[in-house]
């Protein structure tokens, strides 16, 4: 029972990080039908910058804020320079560009910082806690992970449901031409979408890097799990990203815990296959338009 509880808690912590990655993917996909393969690599570059800030002698939180701010800027810049020129062409063009950008960024990071492993600290203890006589594998850092991703989700929810800006962004995502006919300026909103998505990716990177350590490709695996979560949840649903992330995290934890860690990636693939067979549009995808 205690073992089950512990791997469940571990799965939730992992799942929240995966959910943040998935949320980043969803933000871009639903606005532009582009899957951003470079999201992990962009977050990796940003994390190296945070690492540099940290080793300037700044504290963890200054580096944290710097990383998020750099992420926003990096996302916006990528959209303006790489993606905007491809607007109006097939989304496939942009998807291939993001894939190329992933390889480019990992190459650049390797050239600058080498491939050696760097450790990145966590802001809170990563050791499990004792509650009474039972050892719980849920550390203060795990609590921080859950709270940080929940805060991100709530911020997004407030943005999309409660503000005029969010209403405009949803309009651009669902019906770009109609949005323009209602006086919405589409271009800056697409840039903003990329900025927010990149920031979500950076948050995920900062939460995963204390356990995975920093290398040019440390985001690759988590990005794949993020894809899994986004596909399971439905590529255009932020709520789906959260649920998909938790489902992915828990599947990984149970398979890793009971069947062995080497089977974990298989668990993610199995989850995708099963969910595509049962509900190909994803659990929380918007209902298919019904013509009356």
């Amino acid at each position: 029972m205690q073992f089950f509880l512990n791997i469940t808690l571990g799965g939730i912590a992992t799942g929240m990080i995966v959910a943040a990655v998935a949320l980043g993917l969803v933000l871009i996909f639903r606005a532009t039908n582009i899957v951003n393969f470079a999201q992990g690599a962009m977050a990796m570059m940003t994390t190296y910058i945070a690492y540099a800030v940290l080793h300037q002698g700044s504290g963890y939180w200054l580096a944290f804020v710097a990383a998020l701010a750099t992420g926003l800027l990096f996302g916006a810049l990528t959209q303006v320079v790489l993606i905007r020129p491809l607007q109006g062409k097939s989304p496939l063009n942009a998807i291939i560009v993001t894939f190329g950008f992933l390889i480019f960024l990992e190459g650049v990071a390797g050239a600058i910082w080498g491939s050696q492993t760097r450790t990145y600290p966590a802001p809170f203890s990563e050791a499990g806690q004792k509650i009474g006589n039972t050892q719980i594998a849920f550390s203060p850092f795990d609590v921080f992970v859950v709270l940080a991703v929940l805060a991100l989700m709530i911020l997004m929810l407030v943005l999309f449901r409660g503000t005029d800006l969010g209403l405009r962004m949803r309009a651009v995502a669902f019906a770009p031409e109609t949005a323009r006919l209602l006086g919405v300026r589409v271009r800056p909103l697409l840039t903003l979408g990329w900025a927010l998505s990149a920031a979500a990716g950076v948050l995920a990177a900062l939460l995963v890097v204390p356990t995975s350590s920093l290398t040019p490709n440390f985001m690759d695996v988590i990005l794949i799990y993020g894809f899994t979560a986004a596909v399971v949840g439905g590529l255009d649903s932020p709520v789906g990203a959260l649920v998909g992330g938790l489902a992915t995290g828990l599947s990984l934890a149970y398979v890793g815990g009971y069947l062995g860690g080497s089977l974990e990636p298989m668990a993610a693939l199995a989850l995708v296959i099963v969910s595509l067979m049962i509900r190909p549009e994803g659990l929380f995808a918007r209902p298919a338009p019904r013509r009356v």
Partner: peptide, 11 residues
């Protein structure tokens, strides 16, 4: 108002 009752169905 374009053809086809262009309401945003998700809203």
């Amino acid at each position: 108002v374009p053809e086809g009752r262009s309401v945003i169905e998700e809203m």
